[in-house]
Amino acid sequence: MSLLKLENLSVTFGNFRAVDQISYSVNEGEVLGIVGESGSGKSVSSLSLMGLIDYPGKVSADQLTFMDQDLLSMPEAQRRKITGSDIAMIFQDPMTSLNPCFTVGYQIIEALKTHQGGTKKELKHRAIELLTLVGIPAPESRLSAYPHQLSGGMSQRVMIAIAIACNPKLLIADEPTTALDVTIQAQIIDLLIDLQKEKQMGLVLITHDLALVAEVAHRVIVMYAGQIVESGPASEVFSAPKHPYTQALLASLPESAAGRARLQALPGVVPGQYDRPKGCLLSPRCPYVTDHCRNVEPTSQGSLERQVKCHTPLNTQGRPAA
């Protein structure tokens, strides 16, 4: 059953479309990877799911439902009951994501109290359980610790504890390991995946790490300049990419440049507000670009299960189909 379903979701800031008509769904117990360069709209789209887009940002969609409830039309107060309990999110930089003025215990218990309530003793007990669950040693004494007394990895574990406090059905992890060092990254990802399996949560994993997505995600979405350029089962997308952008992302991995002098890179940057090309947004950077691409914006082809937004999708040999 699909947990979260969105159709043609856009997030605009004035004239600028940070997220441009994206559609996807997340099923119960599914891990969905979202990849793409910086500025491709990954974070903004997930913040809009949490209702965290502020004025002047505007969210619009043909459909945005969570467990068949329409998130866009429901009153603020009702939406807040879902935010933080059924849908939870963890962020990129754990060191600044915890409030420096309050103890770890206070910040975990606050989440519990807001959505579930309970006596002081129960809440404290539950907070200790959560800290144990995310692998923090001596959880009882950590309750009274302040965020500046924790390392980055520890802080991220606390953030995860806050996020899973109310047993969310969907967890959004926005580059959860980017700010951490490599050895800790693996631990945090293992923890997330273990929790996801144990609690059968839907997990949206936003990351730059293609290898990680290939390893843990069931399905993957590739975003470019606010649009979904390709999506499908992780194994298919990575073994036989249909979009030139996905192909370029995979080619830029250091592993695929083994034995060569230089890493492969896709020249240019993601278009911003003032340099959006007329046709396909990738056309200035695409190696297979044609005049048709420069003038006409492609539409998404294929099913919701396996879509690609390109005039000439690549065949299994990695060449544009004629």
Binding site: T83, G84, S85, D93, S97, L98, N99, E110, T114
Partner: peptide, 23 residues
Amino acid sequence: DYIRTARAKGIAPWRVIIIHALR
């Protein structure tokens, strides 16, 4: 960032401002 975290918990806006930001 910690204000965003507080809002992501689903806390009421006044509580985010009075408790988390003002302090």
